[in-house]
Amino acid sequence: MKEAQQITGADTLGHVGAAYKGTLSLPNLGRLGLSNLRKEAIPGIPNAPHPLAYYGKMIEISAGKDSMDGHWEMMGLKPLSTFPQGFPQAIIDQIAEFSGRKVVVNQPYSGTDVIHDYGERQMDTGELIVYTSGDSVMQIAAHEDVIPVEELYKICRFARTMLNGPDYQVGRVIARPYIGPDKDHFIRTANRRDFTLEPSSPTVIDQLHQAGYTTIEIGKTNDIFSGHGFTKTYHNESNMDGMDHVDEVMKQNFTGFCFTNLVDFDTMYGHRRDPQGFGQALIDFDRRLGKVLHNLKNNDLLIVTADHGNDPGFRGTDHTRENVPLLVYSPSMQKSGPLGTRPTFADFGATVLDNFSLARGEYGTSFLEQLV
């Protein structure tokens, strides 16, 4: 697989640290080696002379840069299709024929900008606003007073059937209803619904589950994999609610894999370009991470990473393509050190399989043997 290009100037951790003017305090992430994986330390977080963990970075191969692309690559699935020039006309024509409505836009667009620019037209004509982004997604927007929500869902379900492969595999078809009287007052509503692609082949999670290991999900990971392979799931209301679930799971006696996603960094602060809020969320997480480190058993393996970047100090509101941090620790380790820059997120999943002595898939190389 060919490496996708990173976004020049994006630096989530660096910009958050700079916003705090050197006062960002993350003692637990710091002692694991968070700043050691960079050429320059994060402002406020010095390099650890003797880091607790192995540390490195991972490069995303997938062309998209959202949660689904990141998680699927981690768990060994092939990259999804993206449409930087818009969707093929044949697909657009079929949506128009099925819905009885014309389609406008069909190009990458900001979700808030597209309803500002085309929402009044959509109210007048009843057309469908179809757009995409740099990620593997089709979004269909319509005013709720013009196209009822259930009708929009029906159209999205049809679109989903055309994007399941083999020619085009799109991660999500998203219904984007909005309300309001005019372009200056349009609001996207909570009636958004995601119609996700079923995993195209067995994932790392499926392999663990089929081998008899417990597989636990905390956060939105269950939705990303359409419920495949998990023994037990926990829905998070917030990052701290998610960490409460982590504490609960760590009290349980099981052999297997717990996959946790904390979404507030992304939805609450990254997209809203709020570096102060992002930094406080990191501080709160770091505090809870201290309890996790204290409660790890000798045979536990902790991997801290991310599924994409979302630099709150960067332009725009979209995800930012960046190499993600990788911190790996177990109380049984006798040493620590660099893991380098891993060529794909799939190295994470390959390492998880290797940890349980299961055969690795097509993508990814395990770094388990480097952990001593």
Rank of each mutant, 00 (worst) to 15 (best):
I59R: 14
P51E: 10
E73Q: 08
A63D: 06
Y54T: 06
N47Q: 15
I59C: 07
M75T: 13
K65V: 03
H71Q: 08
H50Y: 11
P49I: 10
I61P: 01
E73G: 05
A63F: 00
I59A: 10
K65N: 03
M68P: 07
P51T: 15
M75N: 10
N47T: 15
M68G: 05
G70W: 01
Y54Q: 00
A48F: 04
M75W: 12
I61T: 14
L52W: 04
W72M: 01
S67P: 10
Y55C: 02
Y55N: 02
H71C: 13
H50R: 14
D69I: 00
S67T: 15
G70I: 07
M75C: 11
E73P: 08
M75L: 15
M74L: 12
K65M: 00
M74K: 11
Y54P: 06
P49A: 12
M75D: 12
G56I: 03
D66W: 11
M68I: 15
G70K: 10
K57N: 14
A48P: 10
H50Q: 15
H71N: 12
S62H: 12
Y55K: 03
I59V: 10
K65C: 05
S67Q: 12
E60W: 00
N47K: 15
Y55S: 00
P49L: 07
G64A: 03
H50N: 13
M58A: 14
L52D: 01
P51I: 11
A53K: 12
D66P: 09
K57C: 09
S62F: 02
D69T: 13
A48G: 08
M68S: 12
K57R: 13
A48Y: 00
I61W: 00
E60T: 11
M68D: 11
W72L: 07
M74V: 12
Y54M: 05
M75K: 04
P51V: 07
M74P: 14
I61M: 01
Y54D: 00
